[in-house]
Amino acid sequence: MAEKLLEIENLTAGFLTMSGTVKATEQVSISIDKGQTVCLVGESGSGKSVTSLAIMRLIDYSGGAILDGSIKFRGEDLTKRSQAEMIQTRGNKIAMIFQDPMSSLNPVFTVGDQIAESIMLHRKKGKKEARKMAVDMLRLVGIPAPEIRAKQYPHELSGGMCQRVVIAIALACEPDLLIADEPTTALDVTVQAQILDLLRSLQKELGMSILMITHDMGVAAEMADRIAVMYAGIIVEEGSASDIFARPSHPYTEGLLKSVPGLEGARGEELFTIKGNIPGLSQLPEGCRFHPRCPHAKEICREKAPPAFTVKGDHHAACWMYMGDGGEAGWTIESIPEVSR
């Protein structure tokens, strides 16, 4: 059994508003092994970023709170820690990179100083040594002429370079876990390919785990060992990357994969669509949250939210289709008994 690095159990996090508590995630459970890459996939408003902010306990600063559940990092519950204690972990043991590299960097400091800052803070090094290590970090993330680049400001670097700098800052303290929130969404495809390659090779070199948040199933297919698909605040399907792509089991996952036009096959035909829109968090439907958009929705889906059923092995889906012995036993949506109101 591989060593568990992070175990999130039944995490419910949300925001306190004038009109009551809005739960952005509900009963989210994810675990990440050492050296593993887990991708959290979902559309906007699915709660994937809130989950990552909760792990970092940064949600407290965004007007939100962890309402229930535990986040165990190396066996220790992060939700029980004070913010002062979190400072020791955040940036040091768990680092995070964000979507927009330009706004994650401070425009008035050189990139070298920004990397050195994190090294001085967490690894108690002197200024001179930290600066030298910063140059080494820039070299590690593949920036040419790192000595010169270290003395430049973010505006002198391209978007792809800035994202490399952000990665250098995140990795400067050799974290055990890197949370990457849509790290390549703002970048062009050719630069995205560079950054994904970089993350993969750095992971091999440093042996860290990655929790990657993305809306792109293509990126998830390239990076992930395991995938968790989120919809409207809950995990609807979870399993190994190969299982999920070979056999997408939740109707939402299936719809996501089918609605993206491919690079092979027919063109110009009508694309598969998931009807309707993503519900707002304050007006979530009763029962299964996906049922108003689901082509297979039955009576029971309108009434009761499905728990996570086993599809096969460690592949789970929160859909009534897999009630009973699970998908292998031959349950189909048609065979689910209708529940009368």
Partner: peptide
Amino acid sequence: SAIPRPDPTRKRERIVLQGDV
């Protein structure tokens, strides 16, 4: 070749361009 494909079994034959535009 840089477009990520939603198929983890597909072999990557990627031409990674060096540098930026």
